[in-house]
Design a protein around this nucleic acid. Structure first.
Lengths: 140, 140
DNA sequence: GTATATGCAAAGCATTTGCATTAAA
DNA sequence: TTTAATGCAAATGCTTTGCATATAC
């Protein structure tokens, strides 16, 4: 429950009411919040929370690898706390909805060594794009 | 050579000096230009070209599928005219350099049907992240 | 001649920054 | 007490927009 805050404390970060409120919102699977979403939700518990603090905290959480960011290619970036499973994303090109795709459902990707030519690979971001069931049914 | 302009004409677009200058710059492989890059290069041939026209034209070219956009997750988006081969990208997290990865060097990706749940898939964007040879050698 | 494309400058949006104040440890 | 975190507001960077003018067809 307090896992994220514990890890932050362990890394020397101070636990403030602001960080607690933000951490409380960044929990669960299929959660893909914009910075604005995080602010709005965390403000329910802590109305005086500022946007700048949300951005600062999100930046740190991403740097620590506790949260990952998703760039939809349109609109603000989204933050995903589900870093445990290294899943991929399905993004609707019409409404922007994001759904997770479990890695187990995707064949493993392998890159030929000669393509890497000295690169030190860290990870692969895989984003599937198309129309979600709702948008496929009701074309714009 | 004039292939892109021909296709634009065929779709009813007017061929202006501006579009010619922009099209001349959007040629080749391993080309990943920002809007600013496109403006600067096209202005060599047509100094009075405006930024707004570059953005408008790039937006149309993307909509027509003649150019694809790459979101690096940092900095401005890049435009890639090499839509013929549906390649993937290797992005250096330190200097931002982008290199193409030929699909032939990557194992084919397959998504289990039950993961798609009504989604109408259009494409998969695959971005590998890590350090390029230069940045791996000289850590920041 | 007519509709489309252009250029300019202003607006827009997401995000970052500077800095004085506050508070966690 | 000390150093890090916060809030505010201004600044930044990229991109889009409104609108009058110019121009491809």
């Amino acid at each position: 429950m307090e896992a994220l805050l514990d890890r932050l404390r362990a890394r020397g970060m101070r636990i403030t009411p602001q960080r607690r409120a933000i951490a409380d919102v960044l929990v669960g699977e299929h959660v893909h919040l914009s910075a604005e979403d995080v602010l709005a939700r965390a403000r329910v518990a802590l109305p005086e929370l500022s946007q700048a603090t949300v951005y600062a905290t999100l930046t740190e959480l991403v740097a620590l690898g506790e949260v990952c960011e998703i760039t939809t290619g349109d609109g603000p970036r989204r933050f995903d706390p589900n870093v445990g499973s290294s899943h991929h994303h399905l993004v609707c090109r019409s409404c922007g909805a994001i759904r997770d795709v479990e890695p187990s459902g995707v064949s493993r990707l392998h890159v030929a060594d000669d393509q890497l030519a000295g690169y030190q690979l860290e990870r692969a971001d895989i984003t599937f794009r198309g129309l979600c069931p709702d948008c496929a049914a009701a074309p714009s």
